[in-house]
Write a protein that binds this DNA or RNA. Structure first.
Length: 585
RNA sequence: CGGGGAUUAGCGCAGUUGGUAGCGCGCUUGUUUCGGGAGCAAGAGGUCACGCGUUCGAGUCGCGUAUCCCCGACCA
């Protein structure tokens, strides 16, 4: 490819709206252009790079017996209503009507379409296990797209779905895919990534893992242990915490004028936040109040709350708070109207004693609240059903590890892939069955596996760049070799460069040659922005000695000069060696 | 959905008390340069986001709308 013909120009100035390095370099290097919020077009550089990512992905999916399919992005309301998700998913799904006013959706993932396939194609135990995957556009009307290609409303995802006759078979296969993912990420040049336990969302099965690229700019917070192998997304990370238990003291109401926050309460009473029981108020879509109680020094993880309740929750509106007899600023577990609200108690509250908490009376708090004595014992059966116990607290750096009790750590990460145990969640709701050996209809046990293809490019740029531009692994670089031709009109520089270029291409090397009559500085700057790992510089200066220059984009060695007649074989071998660095076979 | 910011040439920006729009980069042509984003000369390029108002006159003032970005909320 001649650089003069490449579509997509580089720009010197940093685009105003780009904050992340990957976003800046994608725009400056002419990889992508924005169309609207969360909607980007890929120019040739990005398209080539992503095509290479997809090819590696196919190899790894095929290796675990996946079969590539393509399902439609456009689906009817009916299909999505079958699983219950048409109504369960809110505004994140793009919805539209066809010409006859029939409601349709743009798929944000493809469980429903794949079950549609499976219902007619996978009807016998003899066909199982089976896995279908596709590399397809997904549409999600994200509340806030951001970070260039990191969080998009339209993006490419590799999604895979496996079908099994048993839980054991699924779990066995789940770990095969886990291994395939590790291979895929290593082959695409990801360095610093881990798989962590993650939340299954409201509709998942029993467990799931997220693959996380560990970079400071990541959107997710991970809780890890440096002493053992515990790693989890903060959404589900847990800790036994440290707590003390005193003998129960008498419940006591205290007049606390103008005390609204935990901070004010601890100062007023001269106690620590860990001795308080904090109320955090949410509400459901049905306008029921959800009061979550957690130890005062901890925070509530909304995701955990949702899973426990099996309902979506939102910040509570005032009317809803008042209706349940809760008093903002003095909310406590005692005296709430359980016909209008849920109480969710974190395990730190049931484990501890003598908490200070709100009295549900303006200007009053209570001291020495003890859960069983002061709340549970006075409840009738129906009221007890509105009180849930569980783990809703946020684990933080420094809290003890749930496995080894050593202090936990926090890191940031970008989610680049996930694998989910789905079980029969979709096969049941959508009546998807096969006949087993005895001729009985059984629901398929399913797993699903995603990789954010479009996101992987910026994720790799986040961890692999310098201040001049990205440093791509050859396996996903838009080209393998970048030739700079300096002062091409001097002597036979241009002719020699063309000979090298043609010979490299004959050897199957994907090379881009800067054939423009640009100053050396411009050529180098543009080459740096394109991030191609190997570089050949042809110039009259070295040609006088019969040499050309070779260097690595990552600067791992000093630039070296090579005799002209050896360049082609040298570079060809270097390309091969470069691929070998990422090969696992 | 809350809070903040922005919108003027392809990109980055300036534009004073209201007087009919400019700079840098990029682009075109010529010329001299040539190892880390060159110099000179000559060009092309604008519905100042949109709408309504105030005014003799609006990029500038007022009201409204749209779009984009950031923080938070949210993120099958």
């Amino acid at each position: 490819m001649y650089l003069s013909k490449l579509i997509g120009r580089t720009v010197k100035e940093t685009p105003r709206d780009a904050e992340l390095v990957s976003h800046r370099f994608l725009l400056r290097g002419g990889f992508v252009r924005q169309y609207s919020a969360g909607v980007y077009g890929l120019l040739p550089l990005a398209q080539k790079s992503i095509a290479k990512i997809e090819a590696i992905c196919r190899e790894e999916m095929n290796r675990v017996e996946g079969q590539e399919v393509k399902m439609p992005c456009l689906a009817t309301k009916e299909l999505w209503a079958e699983s219950g998700r048409y109504s369960a998913i809110g505004k994140d799904m793009f919805r539209l009507n066809d010409r006859n006013d029939k409601p349709m959706v743009l798929c944000m993932t493809h469980e429903e379409p794949v079950v549609y396939f499976a219902r007619t194609e996978l009807t016998s135990y003899r066909q199982l296990p089976a896995m279908m995957y596709q590399i397809q556009t997904k549409f999600r009307d994200e509340p806030r797209p951001r970070g260039g290609l990191i969080r998009l409303r339209e993006f490419t995802m590799k999604d895979a779905y496996s079908f099994h006759t048993s839980e054991e078979d699924l779990q066995n296969y789940y770990w095969q895919v886990h291994e395939a993912y590790m291979r895929f990420f290593k082959r695409t040049g990801c360095n610093n990534f881990v798989s962590v336990l993650s939340d299954n969302g409201m509709f998942g099965g029993k467990f799931s893992h997220e693959f996380m690229m560990l970079v400071p700019s990541g959107e997710d917070t991970l809780i890890t242990c440096s002493s053992c192998d515990y790693k989890a997304n903060q959404e589900i990370a847990t800790s036994p915490y440290t707590h003390t238990t005193d003998a129960e003291k008498a419940l006591e109401e205290v007049h606390t004028p103008n005390v609204k926050t935990i901070d004010e309460l601890t100062k007023f009473l001269g106690i620590t936040a860990a001795n308080t029981c904090k109320a955090v108020m949410f509400q459901t879509r049905e306008q029921e109040l959800v009061v979550a109680f957690v130890r005062g020094d901890l925070d509530v993880v909304e995701q955990k709350l949702k899973v426990l309740l099996q309902k979506e929750v939102f910040p509570a509106k005032n009317e809803v708070i008042m209706a349940a007899q809760a008093v903002a600023g003095s909310t406590g577990p005692i005296g709430l109207d359980l016909s209008k609200c849920w109480i969710v108690l974190d395990k730190t509250i049931s484990a501890g004693t003598n908490f200070a908490t709100g009295a549900n009376k303006d200007g009053y708090h209570v001291k020495n609240f003890n859960l069983n004595r002061d709340l549970m014992s006075g409840l009738s059966d129906w009221q007890k059903k509105k009180v849930l116990n569980g783990d809703i607290a946020k684990a933080r750096a420094g809290d003890p590890c749930p496995q080894c009790a050593k202090p936990l750590q926090e890191t940031r990460g970008i989610e680049i892939g996930n694998i989910f145990h789905l079980g029969t969640r979709y096969s049941q709701s959508m009546s998807c069955t096969y006949l087993d050996q005895e001729g009985n209809a059984q629901n398929h046990t399913m797993g699903c596996y995603g990789i954010g293809i479009t996101r992987l490019l910026p994720a790799i740029m986040e961890e692999s760049h310098d201040d001049r531009g990205p440093v791509f692994p050859i396996t996903i670089a838009p080209f393998e070799v970048h030739m700079c031709v300096l002062n091409k009109k001097e002597g036979d520089t241009e002719g020699t460069a063309n000979e090298i270029y043609n010979s490299l291409r004959k050897n199957g090397i994907d090379v881009i040659m800067d054939d423009r009559d640009e100053k050396p500085g411009s050529q180098f700057a543009d080459a740096d922005l394109m991030g191609v790992p190997l570089r050949v510089i042809v110039s009259p200066r070295n040609l006088k000695e019969g040499k050309v220059e070779f260097k690595y984009r990552d600067g791992r060695t000093q630039a070296q000069t090579l005799p002209v007649n050896e360049v082609v074989s040298f570079v060809t071998a270097a390309v091969k060696a470069e691929y070998a660095r990422y090969s696992l076979d």
